[in-house]
Simulated scan of single mutants.
Amino acid sequence: MTNRVLLWAAFALVHLFVGALGFLLPNEPMGDVYRVYEPWSRAVFSGGGIVGVTQDWVYPHLALLPMLLAHLPGALVGSYTVGWAILVTAVDGVAFAVLIGAGRSRGRLTAAVFWLAAIVALGPVGMYRIDGVSVPLAILGCLWLLRRPGIAGALLAAATWIKIWPAALIGAAVVAVRRRSVIIGAGALVSALILGIVVAAGGADHALGFVSGQTGRGLQVEAPVSAVYLWGALLGADGWTVDYDQGILTFQVTGPLLSVVSALMTPALVLAAAAVVAIGVVKIRRKVPFVRLFPALGLALTTVLIVVNKVGSPQFQTWLFAIVVFGLVVDRRRWMAPGILVLVSAALTQLVYPVLYNGIVSPEIVAVSVLTLRNLALAVLMVWMVVRLCRLPARSIP
């Protein structure tokens, strides 16, 4: 059989397996789909309001589109949750087809195998979250940056209006791509169109609600910065606990100086990202080639978004997949080791959620230790990419 046939067979099996795991593993890893995505989207049809338009929303506005579209396959199979899995699989399939191409490039084949392995390693939380829609769009955007920068910019902008993380890839692209004006223009056009629709629908007061809604959040239990508080709760320190926030539907930590730490995280994230971008600017001025600069800068920025963040949901691991896929396409030898670390981090994340999650919300030594190892892996990856970025030689040959 040809490489393409084998890869497509693997693609089908992986998505069937991971989709089924959502119904088999504990702690409802597909729960967000039917608990929040379905009610939000049904409210649009029933006249119950439009999130992001009639009220502030935690997600950027375009995130509502896949939630609405999932009703189409959902109606055919009689389950919105299964319909969501079908939708994510279909979008993945488009990006997968572009990625493998004719099935002859070793780099593309390696990248395809990595992506499938990453989907399995992370498990159902990667499929049954809105992030699962943004990843294939980001992969397409990365693959088309040089040959179709306008389309790439539009796709990355659309992905950002679904979940904010692809902004890291846009930032890396603006630094590393010569035709950056095309990328900026396409992204601005998509953004203007989305905001124009929101304002025309009467949602001007809520146009940036997803930004303001993040700044006031506490420390989510899985975030790396929460590790000290989580260990304090595990050891029974007075006032160190894990509590459920009904407003944003997530577990957060409590403890001394929490408000100070929480307030410092947003400026720390901005400063860290700005520092990485500054390194990228220095490197592009020294004529470092795109295929060396963009993936290193993109992964450095993406890991900063995860590590220096007071939110740490398990699906954030999907953010790493797109840029590693691109790295493997253009230079599989240099990107094999980072790819392996991403797979390890994803597998540890699946152990944390959904498998051991009860031991996180009611802290137990095994679960907290696994989460700590996962966070250490992410920190190592971030430092590794920043060091790699700093060491990129001027006028190097890819």
Rank of each mutant, 00 (worst) to 15 (best):
I151K: 09
G74K: 01
I100F: 12
L116A: 12
G74A: 06
V175G: 03
G171R: 07
G132M: 15
V113C: 07
Y80Q: 05
G185N: 06
P136R: 00
A97V: 08
L87T: 02
V177G: 12
G123I: 03
I170Q: 06
A186P: 01
A173L: 02
V82T: 14
V77W: 13
G123K: 05
V91R: 08
L145T: 14
D92C: 05
G103M: 08
I164G: 01
L87G: 00
V120M: 12
I86E: 02
G187N: 09
I130Y: 00
V88H: 11
K163P: 06
A85V: 15
A85I: 10
A152E: 03
A85M: 15
V133Q: 01
L155I: 09
L122T: 11
A97Y: 15
G141Y: 00
W165D: 06
T81S: 12
F114P: 03
L140C: 08
V125M: 12
I184E: 05
A173S: 06
M127W: 14
V190D: 07
A121T: 01
W84L: 04
A154C: 14
L146E: 13
A97S: 11
V88L: 13
R148L: 10
I170D: 05
A159Y: 04
L156Q: 02
A173V: 02
T89M: 14
G101A: 12
W144N: 15
I162S: 06
A173T: 00
L122E: 10
W161F: 11
G150L: 06
A138N: 13
I151V: 14
A121V: 00
P136M: 00
M127T: 15
L143F: 11
R179A: 15
V133L: 15
Y128P: 02
L87S: 04
G126R: 02
L137M: 14
A75K: 15
G107W: 05
A152C: 10
G107I: 03
I139G: 04
L169G: 06
D131P: 02
T81R: 11
G123D: 05
V120W: 12
A95D: 08
R106S: 11
V77Y: 13
L155Q: 08
V98C: 04
G126S: 10
A112E: 09
A154K: 07
A158W: 09
P149A: 07
P136I: 02
W161M: 13
A188N: 04
I164M: 10
A157M: 13
A176I: 00
L155K: 09
W165T: 06
L137I: 08
L155E: 07
A75I: 12
A152L: 07
V175S: 01
V120D: 11
T81N: 11
A154Q: 09
R148F: 09
I100M: 06
L189W: 10
W115L: 06
L155P: 03
V120A: 12
G150T: 07
L145M: 13
G141N: 00
V177F: 11
L189K: 10
